[in-house]
Design a protein around this nucleic acid. Structure first.
Lengths: 156, 156
DNA sequence: TCTGAAATTCTCTCTAG
DNA sequence: CTAGAGAGAATTTCAGA
């Protein structure tokens, strides 16, 4: 379904989606026309969800990063919970998780005061009984999904 | 430094970076040439880090998502630790964190067996003494940074 | 800083092999 | 899938307000 050339195309596009199809084809050993057709199909099939830009969080007032685990006394996997979380613009990701907590959210704010404000609003969501906040001091890296490798040295 | 028009441009580009500068300009009330110039400057200043594509994790064999908190008996904030983590292709993000653990990593694998293999390799990194794994059952959403709003209703 | 237009380059489709 | 060609768009630059 997704062969080696497709994966090479994806890696190229993840690194720089502004390059021409001619350059893209040259990088993976294809003509511009073929590269274009493959990328079109990757989009059509939803392997490529969208083309977007990476924005520097600090440059737009989102320099503080934290992860928060939400405890709950009810099932949080419904649409109402999702909508309540999605309504908070500082929340970048929200996941239902296994284990002690129910939901894990990734939050970006300008300041720690703003982070507090978001925590207060999280507590106001139906079912939320506790929060555990993990503040990030420094991000080593945030990178695209690796579409090629499995675990190196294959020890599994 | 980043005004309202820039933010509008960023939002547009985050949503769809394939649109023409003419369309981009129309969306924010600018000519194509001006939109182009502003976007060029946003790139130059590093506000836009790169143009990339969103890949469906499941389509490329990364359908399992987990967060792992690493405990350590030494300072993990050095380049050696970063390199050791970066060498594992399944790790998408790595952050130094405050609190009980030292490092938080975001991991995507094909299966839970592969996740186990990554955990084994995390334990092999110098200084790592414990892991706490949070498996994601379902992702509500993962979206771009909101470059506009502060916390809605401004209760802060 | 923006506009509008000109010149260049790329996209996208088609044909044929 | 490759190669080439052609029409249509888009990028990119630049003069002028």
């Amino acid at each position: 379904m997704v062969d080696g050339i497709d994966r090479a195309l994806l890696t190229q596009l993840q690194h720089d989606a502004t390059q021409s199809y001619a350059a893209l084809g040259a990088a993976v050993g294809l003509s511009a026309g073929s590269a274009h057709e493959r990328v079109r199909k990757l989009r059509e099939r939803g392997v490529i969800r969208r083309t977007t830009v990476d924005v520097d969080p600090a440059a737009v007032g989102r320099g503080v990063l934290a992860f928060v685990m939400l405890g709950a006394n009810a099932w949080m996997g419904d649409a109402a919970t999702r909508d309540a979380l999605a309504a908070l613009p500082e929340i970048q990701e929200a996941h239902i998780i296994a284990g002690a907590a129910s939901v894990l959210v990734k939050i970006r704010t300008a300041t720690t005061e703003d982070l507090q404000a978001v925590l207060r609003r999280l507590f106001a969501i139906d079912g939320v009984t506790s929060t555990q906040t993990i503040v990030v001091l420094e991000s080593f890296f945030e990178r695209p999904i690796n579409v090629h490798d499995q675990c190196p040295d294959g020890q599994k």
